[in-house]
């Protein structure tokens, strides 16, 4: 996992409520959230209403927190909001594009609002529209765009001033499978090829797994978990299903020093599924002319960890610093 020196986001005891918290209609959107985000690409995961968008808006200074401090790229978001916004790009979740403008005019306009002169704004606009795949449609009015194209246009405006950090709120929301795949690929490219820090929110774990190095899980406005997306090499149990006689193959494995046990599904359970063991299984199957039908990680995977965090009765604030 790529970990950088200056945290992209540091929150200490951040709380935010809308209306009077606890009263009818009042919502505690964030509650004492303390988290430090250092990874090149971090996913903000949580169910609808978990506080993801609010945390992003607080970080950008769009919504002032009730309490707590927020630092973005090492800059105090409350004291120097201007500096933060110049170094951060933001892609909101909802439709927010001027429908009568073309993507080109919109990006030039936003770039100028972010401090670029007109010449640089036009040059940067060409670059970002090319990067997000909108160069062919750049002169069409945004109102005529498909949802996928609008999402790309929103991403383009977030990148046009060359930000150090880009905050993406549900970038795949409403996209069809092909559009979603393309958007995820672009988001992945931002952090891994273009060197831009990414904070992306989603309620779909698969999106985070494909694009991020780290996941922060929010639940009911509280930090529920924070962990790497790609954990250390697995050594936990695996379930194996092969063609032919399962018992005979299990016996062969035992003879080679690999202890096995029957799983509830009737597969061969292997308690220590490290790389050496898996290589041995592969070689033995090849040697015996047996096909491997299923080799599944039965360990405590990210999905289980996230589901556990999102469904636990008490969200904990004791996440990894």
């Amino acid at each position: 996992m790529a970990v950088l020196d200056t945290p992209a986001l540091e929150c200490v005891g951040v709380s935010k409520s809308f209306g009077r918290a606890g009263s009818r209609g009042g919502v505690q959107a964030l509650s004492e959230v303390t988290v430090t985000v250092r990874a090149a690409a971090t996913g903000l995961l949580g169910a609808n209403g978990a506080g993801k968008s609010t945390l992003m808006k607080v970080a950008l200074g769009l919504t002032p927190p009730d309490s707590g401090t927020v630092r973005v790229l090492g800059i105090d978001a409350a004291a120097d909001r201007d500096a933060v916004r110049r170094r951060v790009g933001y892609m909101p979740e909802h439709n927010c594009l001027p429908t009568e403008m073309s993507a080109q005019d919109m990006c030039v306009h936003i770039a100028q609002l972010r401090g670029l002169n007109r010449r640089d704004a036009r040059r940067r606009t060409s670059e970002v529209l090319f990067a997000v795949g909108l160069e062919e449609e750049r002169r069409r009015a945004i109102g005529t765009y498909s949802l996928g194209m609008r999402q790309r246009a929103k991403l383009a405006q977030a990148l046009v001033h060359g930000p150090d950090l880009v905050v993406l709120d549900e970038p795949t929301s409403g996209l069809d499978p092909a559009g979603r795949r393309e958007m995820l690929s672009i988001v992945r490219r931002l952090s891994h090829e273009l060197g831009i820090r990414v904070l992306v929110s989603s309620h779909v774990l698969e999106d985070i797994e494909q694009t991020c190095d780290e996941v922060v899980v929010l639940r009911s406005g509280r930090l529920a978990a924070q962990q790497p997306v790609e954990p250390a090499a697995r050594v936990g149990p695996v379930a194996l299903r092969v063609t032919g006689d399962l018992g005979a193959f299990a016996g062969l494995l035992n003879a080679r020093g690999v202890p096995t046990y029957p799983t509830q599904q009737g597969d061969i359970g292997i308690a220590v599924g490290d790389q050496t063991t898996l290589t041995l299984v592969r070689d033995l199957a090849a040697e015996q002319g047996i096909g491997i039908l299923r080799l599944a990680d039965e360990g405590d995977r990210l999905e289980e960890a996230v589901i556990d965090a999102m469904s636990s009765d008490r969200a904990t604030d004791g996440a990894r610093p």
Binding site: L60, Y90, C96, I110
Partner: peptide
């Protein structure tokens, strides 16, 4: 306005 206010 969300876009505008997310600029400087």
């Amino acid at each position: 306005l969300t876009l505008y206010f997310s600029t400087a």
